[in-house]
Nucleic acid binder design. Structure first.
Length: 224
DNA sequence: CCCTAGATGCAT
DNA sequence: TGCATCTAGGGG
């Protein structure tokens, strides 16, 4: 069992691209409706915003600037940006970068390491444990995080080990004390145009981990 | 306004 | 490969 320690805001203060490797192997725990589930993060994608780094990320929700939808991405690091995908799926990002600068790491896949029974009830379509949180929509569902209810909740927990009051929903991010041994990078999944090509190798995953999702190119994400 | 495509998942 | 289901953003 890998050792973890609570993530701090400082851990997430740099750009999503810089922070990404440290989030691999991290643990995200939620308590929703009194049910506790934890995943070990195995696959993520970095997204920037207007004003982050040298280039504008054309695949980011924050590419146009701040809006009501992406407001959480512009806030404090360590909060969770939960958005609705295709009107159905709630996908989860960990916000990175200082307040006022947009950035986030989309949690694309994880291994359920606690609350497998609860996750299985939330994910009736999953036939094997590996599929419980394999994919961003599945991961959000396994953790019980939903848009818009959980958008913006804080995953940085100073109180140890758990706050006395679990008001509504609770999330906690812990980083692995030892960075993952080997990780791979590549184009982001389902992102259209140049932003979904190897010009933006902003997808990170733990090499060889079985819970990593299958790559699927975005529309017109042709290499050139 | 109307239309389209989307950081997806699942059954066919 | 089609469809669910809702919304941001671009075009008329």
């Amino acid at each position: 069992m890998t050792h973890h320690r609570p993530a701090t805001r400082d851990d997430l203060l740099r750009t999503a691209l810089d922070v990404a490797p440290r989030l691999l192997g991290a643990r995200l725990t939620t308590v929703v409706d009194g049910n506790r589930v934890a995943v070990r993060i195995t696959e993520i994608e970095a997204y920037h915003g207007l004003g982050t780094g040298d280039v504008i990320d054309p695949g980011s929700h924050a590419r146009m600037g701040q809006t009501a939808r992406n407001a959480t991405m512009w806030g404090e690091p360590g909060h969770l940006y939960v958005y609705l995908s295709h009107g159905i799926h709630s996908c989860v990002n960990v916000v990175t970068g200082p307040a006022g600068v947009a950035g986030g790491l989309l949690l694309r896949a994880g291994e359920v390491i606690e609350g497998t029974d609860v996750a299985a009830l939330r994910r009736p379509a999953a036939r094997v444990p590996r599929d419980l949180a394999r994919g961003p929509g599945r991961l959000g569902q396994a953790l019980g995080l939903r848009h818009p209810r959980h958008d913006g909740i804080d995953a940085i927990v100073d109180a140890a080990p758990w706050p006395a009051e679990l008001a509504g929903a609770f999330a906690r991010l812990d980083l692995a004390r030892e960075p993952v041994r080997a990780f791979s990078t590549g184009p982001r999944v389902g992102v259209a145009g140049i932003a979904g090509t190897s010009a933006f190798p902003w997808r990170f995953w733990i090499t060889g981990d079985p819970t990593v999702s299958v790559f699927r190119p975005g529309r017109a994400a042709v290499e050139g």
